[in-house]
Design a binder for these strands. Structure first.
Length: 266
DNA sequence: TTAAGTGTTGCTCT
DNA sequence: AAGAGCAACACTTA
């Protein structure tokens, strides 16, 4: 689940339900997800802290405290869940923040890919991680996007997914964005014409924002997604929502990408 | 029962 | 040196 739209939903969850709250207690139930800090140190560091705000960069979430931030990554299937007072703790909760009124915030991560840690600043952490600009940052414009693609010797899909070049897109949404822009995933990035690059940029913005809006409604009905989304068909035997052609699958570096061989030509 | 899977890291081979 | 491929991480679902 957690690519940019999912992490943005977590970001809004913290902003809407946790901002301003004091952390009465932090409980680490699985030290295996801690990055660069011990259970005791993290619990002491968070006790008495206050959640001031929240920020997202690519697939990373930063819960801003009075000093520094709690940095989170969700790996393949992690999530953040608000637990109302008296509510049951979700399975695979690895870290829980308890607020003084009994409500809580659970960091859930079944596979333990990803983790949490403390950082001094978002900027410093983003630098350490070597992340490129967030793809939805207003400052990340067509010019910046074009410059990155122009230097890409790899397939456009590989470039879109390279977090060091630009942060936020993973396997699922790179497929979705390429489908919306009607571009073949195996075209070499720097060979794209400027018209195609502009189309891709617009599709990226539009698609990600639509996915966030869909998730933000918290209604999980697939019918809420735009009808031309590839996502619900993105599996073996799936069909193009636009022309009905059977989807093609390409395995590259262990990941499977899906595309419509009719709509997305080289 | 087996295989595939949303991400990242680190290693090897070219 | 850059890029591709793969295994590992732990667990769910088709």
């Amino acid at each position: 689940m957690p690519e940019l739209p999912d992490v943005e939903i977590f970001n809004r969850l913290v902003l809407h339900h946790c901002r301003g709250r004091a952390i009465a207690q932090a409980v680490v139930s699985d030290p295996g997800i801690l990055q660069g800090i011990s259970s005791d140190a993290l619990e002491q560091r968070l006790k008495g802290e206050q959640i001031r705000s929240s920020a997202r960069h690519g697939k990373h979430l930063f819960i801003l405290l009075k000093a520094g931030a709690l940095a989170m990554h969700f790996g393949m299937n992690g999530s953040l869940r608000f637990v109302p007072r008296g509510g049951a703790e979700p399975p695979y909760t690895r870290l829980r923040l308890d607020f003084d009124d009994g409500d809580g915030l659970a960091y859930v991560n079944p596979r333990r890919l990803g983790g949490v840690g403390i950082c001094e600043s978002v900027e410093g952490s983003v630098n350490e991680l070597g992340l490129g600009p967030d793809v939805l940052d207003p400052g990340f414009d067509l010019e910046a996007f074009t410059a990155i693609l122009a230097g890409g010797k790899r397939d456009v899909k590989a470039v879109l997914m390279d977090q060091q070049l630009m942060a936020g897109l993973g396997n699922i949404y790179s497929d979705e964005v390429l489908f919306q822009a009607r571009l073949h995933p195996e075209v070499t990035a720097r060979n794209l014409r400027s018209e195609a690059v502009a189309r891709l940029f617009r599709a990226m913005r539009k698609t990600l924002n639509a996915a966030i809006e869909y998730g933000a409604g918290s209604e999980r009905g697939v019918d809420q997604l735009p009808k031309d989304f590839l996502l619900p068909q993105r599996h073996r035997g799936g069909h193009c929502p636009r022309c009905g052609t059977g989807l093609a699958a390409g395995k590259r570096s262990g990941r499977t990408g899906y595309y419509c061989p009719h709509c997305q030509q080289k």
